[in-house]
Amino acid sequence: MPPVPTDATTSTLANSPAASLATSQGSRLAQRLQDLGPLLGLILLCIAGWVLNPDFATAANVLNVLTRTAFIGIIAVGMTFVIIAGGIDLSVGSMAALIAGAMILLMNAIGTAIESAYLVVTLGIVFALLLGALFGLAHGLLITKGRIEPFIVTLGTLGIFRAYLTYFANGGAITLDNAVSDVYSPVYYGSLLGLPIPIWVFLLTALIGGLVLNRTRYGRYVQAIGSNEQVARYAAVEVDRIKMLTYVVLGICVGIATVLYVPRLGSASPTTGLLWELEAIASVIVGGTALKGGEGRISGTVIGAILLSVISNILNLTSIISVYLNAAVQGIVIIIVAFLQRSRR
């Protein structure tokens, strides 16, 4: 493995205007401030929440918010890779729903044959992760080998995944059998050292994601492809393989999120994961990753995801604004934060 990259090597490889600009000393400070934009937004929002309702700052509420952020947050970490490499995945919500449904059906089916509920849950989890990776691989193949726009591929699978879930569920809900459900529920409701399990998984995923993106050759290739695919190709980067892998990474992240999601309600229905794709993409972009690809930060994505769930949490904790306007408030906050971290164009 080559040594830790400097900005200089990245920019030679990428040769993008954005990357070379970032190296000039003048804009460095401005860049730092912009990096802090989402964090600043989050802090301001938290202060507002605390003023509006002091219960906002209680440990229980903070843990609630972080736990429910975990699904979108984990997916958003994978989405960061896809978007930095210049792609997009619109199907993640439907994919999560289908994986959840398929996983429940599998666990119910083998639950009658296998004695140990722990083994059933383990098999279910492995199945969910594999299925996620497989869906991601299918996306990657269609996009790189099939040369179809990622927007179209994943728009197609968005419909396909959800339709199959609805079909399996007969339009209703797929519900996990009780015996398995009891063994499985600590995965969402349990805690380790005072922190709920989903928060641990979220942190771990973000940490690994950040390391891979910034400290490995693979991560640098992802950024290079997003900056300028042609140049990356000339630099002998295996563009297709790297891109394909970003979708597999995202698929596995969706699998992880689903593994945490299923024990919460023990069911999957046609409304499961609805609009998660937009929330995940918004987390990534609010967190400072460019939608056109090339640059981005996992830490920003994590903050973006937390920010989005804090908004709706505050709205639920207060009644100063008409419930009819909730979506408007969310929209305004998202735009303000995006303004705070707007990149130099």
Binding site: N64, L265, S267, T271, N313, N316, L317, V323
Partner: peptide, 23 residues
């Protein structure tokens, strides 16, 4: 005490109720 929209959706109802319980 309050009435919020949860879109006839299990997940949204879970979140809204969690926040009611906090509040």
């Amino acid at each position: 005490l309050d009435a919020k929209y949860a879109n006839w959706n299990r997940d949204d109802a879970f979140k809204v109720m969690q926040d009611y319980l906090t509040r």
